[in-house]
Nucleic acid binder design. Structure first.
Lengths: 109, 109
DNA sequence: GAAGCCTGTAAGTTGAGACTTACATATGAC
DNA sequence: GTCATATGTAAGTCTCAACTTACAGGCTTC
């Protein structure tokens, strides 16, 4: 995991509104407008937060059509469990100095 | 853990410079000026970051006198291991709605 | 048609954190 | 004395994320 990845997750989850969004989604998938009502925040604002959570791969979205034809953008939680400890941080930061080498997978430096 | 506590830690660690500071401190305790040189950032700036890390209880400081009489403010890592997952977040957010009750310890609601 | 939902986005404001420069203090060495 | 080290902090700038308002569509139901 690069420090960019780590920072994306930490910054994404390190915000009160996004924390609340995640907690609300813990009860099950919801579409944007409905979630906005529950969290009592404007839809465009929530939209922005959800985009951020999605980039950090903490949630997944899915545009669907309701039975009555409305477009509903559903969001649901992606499973995640990040351990914020020394090993994680040192590991992530190490990659920054380790030379910006392109590698597909693994730690073959 | 309240959501304030959780946010303090996440926001503190969710910043590139502070991540680097932590990684550098992983090699052992350092005083501010020395750490500033290693990270190549201004001392006042680093100072601010360290204060933030200390508030989140990720580092501990200690003002000491060097053999030659100089005051050195040493920082060292505090042990930490936060699991960023659903349980942690839901638990933290739950306390916000759970009524701002003062309680010493335990979850006796 | 108008009204009720929904998504998507642009444009503007604002506020907080990040960052710089500068200074005051203290100590020891020359 | 001056020069080097260190801490502590004030004051200012600046950038960016957060947030609001407003509008563009789409589809139903009446």
């Amino acid at each position: 995991m690069t420090s960019d990845d780590l920072l994306a997750v930490l910054a994404a989850v390190g915000h009160r509104q996004r924390l609340r969004a995640i907690a609300e989604l813990a009860g099950g998938r919801l579409y944007v407008s409905e979630l906005a009502r529950r969290l009592e925040m404007s839809r465009p604002l929530l939209y922005m937060h959800l985009e951020r959570l999605e980039k950090a791969e903490l949630v997944v979205s899915n545009l669907e059509l309701s039975p009555d034809g409305k477009a509903l953008k559903y969001f649901e939680l992606a499973p995640f469990d990040l351990h914020v400890n020394l090993a994680t941080i040192v590991g992530a930061v190490a990659q920054d100095t380790e030379g910006p080498v392109n590698m597909k997978k693994g730690t073959a430096a």
